[in-house]
């Protein structure tokens, strides 16, 4: 399977990529690691006329400590996130979840920014961004803006990043020693989650769910139950409340609801 024809424009800086995006408009797509975009292009489910390659923009790949948060550049590959001591210490949930993305080859290519901009409710890192209440930095030609995790995922495979914008970095609040947990249920090694959850404890606990809606979602009802000091069994029992999980060849709606409750129970135990 070979993608349809396209023009290839490598960008050496974020500024250059944004100018190219403006020039080519809707016909263009940026490629980072290509591990979501290329499979779609090979199946001809995506047929961009222009590919803007941001993969070589080195200064968008970083993990930096800044005051109360750790900033992760959009082009940072899953492998670096997984092995980062700074993240293991300050945002361990993110480093751990990154180690569960696909397989080693996928983690050597895929980037955190690509994973988030793809906006797939079945992927792992959006749940972490929701659970940790991270902030996303988006740049356009007119400047940068900050978007809260809750406002980032807007529709099925749609995010707050507009066609002529780039995701630049993600800021994760440091969590110190606060407990966290990550549960991913899949049938075979290397598979995507059928359902999963990411939990970050703290003064404002966060519970991000994997594959429990048409967009990445948090379980607000369970979060509220957790904040109110309910027992684990009671928090877990409302994991799926208010959510509309999909039904597909891997699982039906009721099974996903059941899994959400079981996995949240495990995550909190």
């Amino acid at each position: 399977m070979i993608p349809a024809k396209f023009d290839y424009k490598p960008a050496s800086s974020a500024e250059e990529a944004i100018l190219l995006l403006q020039e080519y408009g809707d016909e263009a797509k940026v490629i980072a690691g290509g591990h979501s975009l290329l499979p779609l292009m090979k199946l001809r489910l995506a047929n961009p006329e222009v590919i803007i390659d941001i993969g070589e923009i080195q200064d968008l790949s970083f993990i930096e400590e800044r005051d109360d948060h750790i900033a992760v550049g959009a082009l940072t590959r899953h492998r670096l996130v997984e092995h980062s001591d700074l993240l293991r210490e300050n945002v361990p949930l993110l480093a751990h979840a990154a180690s569960h993305v696909g397989d080693p080859q996928v983690r050597n290519r895929g980037t955190i920014g690509g994973s988030l901009c793809h906006g797939d409710p079945a992927s792992d890192l959006p749940a972490v961004v929701l659970a940790t209440r991270a902030t996303l930095i988006i740049r356009s030609q007119t400047g940068e803006r900050e978007v809260a995790a809750d406002d980032f995922f807007t529709d099925f495979w749609e995010t707050a990043v507009n066609p002529a914008e780039l995701l630049m970095e993600i800021r994760f609040p440091k969590v110190g020693d606060q407990p966290w947990a990550f549960q991913k249920f899949s049938r075979r090694a290397q598979d995507w989650a059928i359902v999963g959850c990411a939990v970050q404890h703290g003064s404002n606990p966060g519970i991000g769910m994997i594959n429990m809606g048409s967009i990445p979602v948090r379980s607000s009802v369970a979060e509220e139950a957790l904040r109110s000091g309910n027992a684990v069994i009671d928090v877990a029992s409302v994991a799926d409340e208010g959510l509309s999980p999909p039904s597909d060849i891997h699982a039906e709606v009721d099974y996903r609801r059941h899994l959400a409750r079981v996995l949240l129970g495990r995550a909190l135990s």
Binding site: I31, G34, H35, L38, P39, D53, V106, N108, R109
Partner: peptide
């Protein structure tokens, strides 16, 4: 291996 790291070459463009 791409710069020493394992990658799946069916999901990388030659230009990359």
């Amino acid at each position: 291996l791409l710069d020493g790291e394992a990658v799946k070459s069916c999901t990388v463009l030659a230009v990359q």
